[in-house]
Computed example of a mutant assay.
Amino acid sequence: MTSKTAGTHGAVLADTVPEADRPIVQLRGAGKAYGNIRALHGVDLAVHPGRVTCVLGDNGAGKSTLIKIISGLHQHTEGEFLVDGGAVRFTTPRDALARGIATVYQDLATVPLMPVWRNFFLGSEMTKGPWPVRRLDIARMKRTADEELRNMGIVLDDLEQPIGTLSGGQRQCVAIARAVYFGARVLILDEPTAALGVKQSGVVLKYIAAARERGLGVIFITHNPHHAYMVGDHFSVLRLGTLELSAARADITLEELTNHMAGGAELAALKHELAQVGGVDVEALPDEEPEGSAPDTAAPATAAPTTAVPGSAAPDTAAPDSAAPAEGKA
């Protein structure tokens, strides 16, 4: 929403959106086609400072294509891509970095046998001395790396240890701190918890929240709705290259988000197919929709003692016509 203020000569001017509400990165109907293959189509996404935008989807949903567009690796072929309200078309990832968009990929872009401090400044080393005999300023790089890691709450006893000796969660956190230090305003995290255990995933989620508290806009790519719901402010679910769901945290529950991720329609079709196979008790399977309480009323007709269990799991809203399929099965 725009507000109006008086100009320098008394004229009423329309202000732009306040800084806190203006998205840093915004996609409007964005898409990407590789020849006649449409990998992404009609995607709307807004990344605000100090908020975590979670992008969820199964394999092949279009998450990687979306990352490549925002990070400057690929160009969109339809729609608009805006940064700070202006249309852009990045040609290289360095263009995105220059605008404050940093990506932390699953491989973290680290060299396992190099020390932590060297990986922190990999490709952007500090130097000292006159040209052409400038040399690495090792003391300053160690000091800076230690300070920045501590600012993110990461305390390492020895920065000389190879980064490959750190746990997966610690390496993720070092990559996040590195992106923050080099001026990232938007942080894209590509499946940071995919290969981690429960404890290490919690460590990474904690530092995602810390990055949000520092005012960064975070794009959290994941296929785990439980992890997303812990730290997310807005959720976008992709399916087959299109945006199936876009909802704020206040407008969706974890159960609804999980159902969108799992694909309620596909589960319903699968349950129907399993019903045609002998030896499969489909009544014992969980309902694909919350309104699955009608089988309770049809339990006496089916005379199956297990039908009361799945029906009682979701007594919220009973669909009036759901008893008819139950009678048909009976």
Rank of each mutant, 00 (worst) to 15 (best):
A39S: 11
A313F: 07
K4Q: 11
L189G: 13
A194Q: 10
L166R: 04
A211I: 10
D158N: 14
R99P: 01
E289Y: 13
G123H: 06
D158G: 03
P290M: 05
I188F: 08
G50P: 10
M141R: 03
G215H: 12
G57S: 05
T302Y: 00
Q172W: 09
R150N: 13
Y105E: 02
K128Q: 13
G62E: 02
T297Q: 01
K199N: 09
D44E: 09
K128M: 13
C173P: 03
N224P: 02
L82P: 02
V83Q: 07
S167G: 15
V88L: 10
H272C: 00
W117F: 14
K4D: 01
L196A: 04
T144F: 06
R89I: 02
D316W: 09
G311Y: 00
D233K: 12
G86Q: 15
E288C: 07
T53E: 12
M230T: 14
G29Q: 04
L136W: 04
E256C: 03
K32Y: 14
A194H: 13
R94K: 15
A313T: 09
V83F: 11
V280Y: 12
P192A: 11
D316H: 07
Y105W: 11
R239G: 02
Y105S: 08
A33V: 05
V55R: 06
K271L: 01
W117E: 09
Q75I: 03
V180D: 13
I70E: 12
D190V: 08
